[in-house]
Computed example of a mutant assay.
Amino acid sequence: MEYSYPISIDWSTDEIIIVIQFFEAIEKVYEKGVQRAVLMEKYRKFKLVVPSIGEEKKVFREFEDVSGYSAYHAVKKMKDASDKDFIQL
């Protein structure tokens, strides 16, 4: 992709990698689909880096602005799906 992921200068290198891996999984949800368990694990790790709802909304909005992909809709679909579902938007 030809855009920058939203990152914070306060995050460590490992935390930045976790956030980028989560957003790469969101891209896959839109482009070809992802197993729910895979997305759930990426989201669980993302929440360790971005624990507050307010910061999550801010980062999701920044990602959607640059990519056109809604992390919110992908996460909502993931939460509504059953364990063995394949998530695709």
Rank of each mutant, 00 (worst) to 15 (best):
E2D: 15
E2Y: 05
Y3R: 00
Y5V: 13
P6N: 08
S8C: 12
S8H: 04
I9V: 01
I9P: 01
D10Q: 11
W11V: 00
S12R: 09
S12W: 01
T13P: 02
T13A: 11
T13M: 07
T13Y: 03
I17Q: 11
I18R: 10
I18H: 00
V19R: 02
F23Y: 15
F23A: 08
E24I: 13
A25E: 10
I26F: 04
I26Q: 11
I26R: 07
I26E: 04
I26W: 02
K28I: 00
V29D: 12
V29H: 01
E31Q: 09
K32D: 08
V34M: 11
V34A: 01
R36H: 14
V38D: 05
V38A: 10
M40H: 10
E41F: 08
E41R: 09
K42C: 13
K42Y: 09
K45A: 10
K45C: 06
F46P: 14
L48A: 02
V49A: 06
V49L: 07
V50T: 02
P51T: 04
P51H: 05
S52C: 04
S52D: 12
S52A: 09
I53C: 02
G54R: 02
G54T: 09
G54V: 01
E56L: 03
K57F: 12
E62W: 01
F63G: 03
F63L: 03
F63R: 02
D65L: 12
S67D: 05
G68H: 08
S70W: 00
S70T: 01
S70E: 07
A71K: 06
A71P: 13
A71R: 04
Y72M: 03
V75H: 06
K76A: 13
K77C: 08
M78Y: 01
K79M: 15
S82H: 10
D83M: 02
D85Y: 08
D85F: 07
I87E: 05
I87W: 00
Q88N: 07
Q88C: 12
L89K: 00
